[in-house]
Each structure stands twice: as structure tokens, then as C-alpha cells.
Design a protein around this nucleic acid. Structure first.
Length: 201
DNA sequence: GAGTAGATCCTCT
DNA sequence: GAGGATCTACTCA
């Protein structure tokens, strides 16, 4: 199992990187507790020209500052006061591309994830949707800016990949405020996977 | 099964 | 002071 190299994240085509994240393993290691999931749903946020992105038109604030960093770090923010959303920053410095990881299939540490989410047994709600995923993996704003090749949180390739026929694209979820950019097919997911969230329009 | 309200808090205007 | 890259539970049918 290999951690993805920085060159994977620092390419300039965020859509390509987004597609290639499907099937990779997202791993967290909190105080020795290792949990991981296979990524089955992601969304691309295309820098300054994407109205749905926090970085639209070059907006740069304390919150989204990390989007302007070199690719290969985590961007975590709190949404609706309740949910932490985990993003992968891509491309190079000053180009604020990011990928929202929306869902993963539990692989390791399922009992730990159940404990964190207060669930009794594994079902498809454990890591379905960005809020649940972060909760199960123990991700919060403390991880903002962390390297994705670090000890506590990283993304790895274990040689597995989904068949192209199993993947599909659709508009993104929950970004209706973005006008016509809300219609862009920037969401990629694995067809028929029970952990994939949302209802594409 | 579909539709809606409520939770809850940080960030930006 | 408003609202958000969400989720769940509850209503009504």
C-alpha cells in the first residue's frame, strides 16, 4: 500500500485527479486508532471560476486560505454548525482547487467508526455523505492544513481500482446557490454502491 | 415514500 | 446578523 505521491495532487487538471481518487483508500490514524475507507464518491471544486467553490473569484479568507496552498494537504471546514467536510487540496500554490470527499466504503477499524458515530452495527449510513464520513474517520478542523502524506491522515493506493463502467458523473449535491455552475458534472461516484449519497438531479 | 423542519456555530458581510 | 459543499427524524399520505 503506497501513499499517493505529491505529484498526484499537484497536477493542474482537478477533474482528472478527482476521477482518479475513486477507489483509493482514505486512512486516518488518531492516537493509534487506525480507520480507513475506500473512496466511492467525490466532487471537484474548480478554483476561482467555480461559483460553488469557497474560492470563487479569488476570494481568500482565513477559512479557505489553505485552498491556496500547494496540493496534497487537507482542507476541513464546519458546515451548518454540525458537520465537518473533508477536502483534498490539489494543484500548486495560489491555485485554489479542491476535491470534496463525499463518501467511502468502510475498510478498516469499523468497530472504531461505530463507536465514534454511536451506531450499533455496520450499515450504509456509517460513511455515507461527507458529514458522516468525517465523523466516522474522526476528522475535524484540527486536521485543516495537514499533509495527506502525514502520519495522522493520508490517502493510499493499494492497487485496487474501479472499472470505468462502474463510474459515473453528475451535478454536485447541495450547491443550488451556484447558479449555472451548480449544473456542472463535477461529481463522480461508483454506480450502485450503497455508500454513495445524495440524489442527482 | 416524499416532503419539511430543526439542530447548531463559525465565518463573512 | 444571516446563512451554509448536511443529516436525521418526524409528519402526512
Amino acid at each position: 500500500m503506497e501513499k499517493l505521491p505529491l505529484s498526484f495532487y499537484r497536477r493542474n487538471n482537478v477533474l482528472q485527479v478527482t476521477k482518479e481518487l475513486l477507489g483509493k483508500l482514505l486512512v486516518t490514524n488518531r492516537e493509534g486508532l487506525i480507520t480507513s475507507g475506500r473512496i466511492v464518491e467525490v466532487e471537484a471544486y474548480n478554483g476561482v471560476i467555480d461559483k460553488a467553490a469557497h474560492s470563487f473569484s479569488g476570494r481568500r479568507t482565513a477559512r479557505n486560505e489553505i485552498m491556496y496552498a500547494d496540493g496534497g494537504v487537507a482542507y476541513v471546514f464546519l458546515c451548518y454548525g454540525i458537520h465537518y467536510l473533508f477536502n483534498v487540496v490539489t494543484n500548486s500554490k495560489d491555485t485554489p482547487h479542491a476535491i470534496l470527499v463525499r463518501a467511502a466504503e468502510p475498510v478498516k477499524g469499523i468497530d472504531i467508526m461505530l463507536q465514534r458515530t454511536g451506531k450499533e452495527k455496520l450499515d450504509n449510513t456509517l460513511t455515507r455523505g461527507p458529514g458522516n464520513l468525517s465523523k466516522a474517520l474522526g476528522i475535524n478542523t484540527a486536521h485543516n492544513g495537514y499533509s495527506l502524506r502525514g502520519k495522522e491522515i493520508f490517502i493510499a493506493d493499494d492497487g485496487f481500482s474501479f472499472n470505468k463502467k462502474e463510474m459515473a458523473a453528475s451535478p454536485r449535491i447541495g450547491v443550488d446557490y451556484a447558479g449555472k455552475d451548480a449544473l456542472l458534472p463535477y461529481r463522480f461516484y461508483v454506480k450502485g454502491n450503497p455508500f454513495v449519497s445524495g440524489k442527482p438531479k
